[in-house]
C-alpha cells in the first residue's frame, strides 16, 4: 500500500514535468491560433496577477537570501548580545533597525521568521516587521515626490508610522510570552556547535540551499495573495468603497480598506495615495500610507504561513485599531 502510493506520486511528478515541458513547446502554437480562447477578463486578471509577482519576486528573492544568511551565519549568541534585555528598549531597537532596513512587506516576512527562530523576542521582531517596509529611503523619497515635493506628508508618514509601530510592538510584548511561530526550531544549539566546524564554502552553499527551500515555502503564499488581489482588481469595482458616505472616519476606513485589498508595494503606494487627494482629506490618505506597508492582503497570507492564525488575527486587529487611532489624532494637530 505504502509503495503503491509512492509510485503513484512519482508518476504524478513525472506527469507534471511532462506538462510543463510540453507547455514550453506549445506556446507558439497557442499564441498563434484561436483554439485557446479564454474570456478577455481572464487575460486582464492574468496580466495584473503576473505583474504583482514580477514586481514582488525580486524582493522576495533578496529576502530569502538574507534569511538564508541569518540561518547559517548569525548565531543565537550574536543576537543575545545585540538585543537589549529590557522589553521597551528591545521594541525601540526592533523598530529602529527596521527603519534603517530597506525591505518590502513581502520580502521581510522570511527575514522576521528567521530572526525570531534565532531568539529575537517576538515584540522586537514585530517592530522590525512593521517599520521595515514603511520607513526607508526609497519610500520616503517616493512619498515626497508623489505629494508634489511636499515634505509634510512624508514626515507625517514616517513619524506616525514609527510611533504606531512602537505602540503595536509594545502591546504585543505585554500580550505574548512565547514566540507564536507555527513550528519551532528545537535543535538550534546543535547547529551552533556544528556550524563553527564547517568550512566557509560549505556554509555559503548551505545558505543558498536554505534560501531555495525558503523561496518555495514563501512564494506559495505570495502567489495566493497576488491571486486574490488580482481577482479583486479585475472583478470588483472599487466604487463600492465610496458608498459608505462622507466624513473623516468613513473616508479613513475606506482608504485603509483600499490599502489592504490593493496590496501595493510600499514603494509605489504613495502615488496611488496622492491620486486621492482631490477626493479625500489628507488624514485619510495618511492612514492609507501608514497602514498599507504594515499589513495588507498578500502579506497577511504570508504571515499566516509563519505565525499561528490566532496571533495573526490579533496582530491584524492591533495594527488596524492603533493606526486608525493615531492617524485620527493627527487631524486635531
Amino acid at each position: 500500500m505504502q509503495s503503491k502510493l509512492k509510485i503513484s506520486t512519482q508518476f504524478l511528478v513525472v506527469f507534471m514535468l511532462g506538462i510543463s515541458i510540453s507547455i514550453m513547446f506549445m506556446v507558439p502554437i497557442f499564441s498563434s491560433s484561436d483554439v485557446f480562447t479564454l474570456p478577455k477578463s481572464f487575460n486582464q486578471f492574468n496580466t495584473i496577477f503576473l505583474s504583482i509577482l514580477i514586481e514582488a519576486i525580486p524582493f522576495v528573492l533578496i529576502g530569502v537570501l538574507i534569511a538564508g544568511f541569518i540561518q547559517i551565519f548569525i548565531t543565537e549568541d550574536h543576537i543575545r548580545a545585540f538585543i537589549p534585555k529590557n522589553k521597551i528598549l528591545a521594541v525601540f531597537m526592533g523598530c529602529f533597525v527596521g527603519s534603517l532596513f530597506p525591505a518590502c512587506e513581502c520580502g521581510i516576512v522570511p527575514i522576521v521568521r528567521r530572526l525570531i527562530e534565532k531568539g529575537v523576542p517576538l515584540y522586537a521582531g514585530i517592530g522590525f516587521l512593521l517599520t521595515g517596509p514603511l520607513i526607508n529611503p526609497i519610500v520616503i523619497l517616493s512619498t515626497y515626490m508623489a505629494f508634489g515635493n511636499d515634505l509634510e506628508m512624508a514626515l507625517y508618514r514616517m513619524g506616525v508610522g514609527f510611533v504606531a509601530a512602537v505602540a503595536i510592538a509594545l502591546v504585543v510584548s505585554f500580550l505574548y510570552k512565547s514566540n507564536q511561530l507555527k513550528r519551532m526550531n528545537k535543535n538550534q544549539n546543535a547547529f551552533l556547535k556544528e556550524g563553527k566546524r564547517q568550512l566557509i564554502g560549505t556554509r555559503v552553499s548551505e545558505m543558498f540551499k536554505h534560501s531555495i527551500d525558503e523561496f518555495f515555502d514563501m512564494s506559495k503564499y505570495l502567489i495566493l495573495g497576488a491571486f486574490v488581489a488580482a481577482l479583486l482588481q479585475t472583478y470588483v469595482s472599487m466604487q463600492f468603497l465610496f458608498l459608505f458616505g462622507d466624513g473623516l472616519i468613513h473616508s479613513t476606513i475606506v482608504m485603509m480598506a483600499l490599502a489592504y485589498f490593493l496590496s501595493l508595494c510600499s514603494e509605489a503606494d504613495a502615488f496611488i495615495g496622492a491620486s486621492f487627494k482631490n477626493i479625500f482629506p489628507s488624514t485619510s490618505i495618511l492612514a492609507f500610507l501608514v497602514y498599507g506597508p504594515m499589513i495588507d492582503l498578500k502579506n497577511t497570507i504570508m504571515l499566516l504561513s509563519v505565525f499561528k492564525a490566532k496571533f495573526v488575527f490579533v496582530l491584524f486587529m492591533l495594527i488596524t485599531s492603533i493606526v486608525f487611532t493615531f492617524v485620527y489624532l493627527t487631524s486635531f494637530l
Binding site: S31, K40, N43, N46, Q239
Partner: peptide
C-alpha cells in the same frame, strides 16, 4: 501546483493591455 501556476499562465497566455473593464473598476 501553486508555484507552477503563474509559470503555466505566464508562458501560455500573452500579456494583455488593460482595458475599460479595469478602468471601470478603478473609477
Amino acid at each position: 501546483a501553486i508555484v507552477a501556476f503563474p509559470l503555466i499562465t505566464g508562458f501560455t497566455i500573452p500579456p494583455a493591455t488593460l482595458d475599460s473593464s479595469i478602468a471601470a473598476n478603478k473609477g
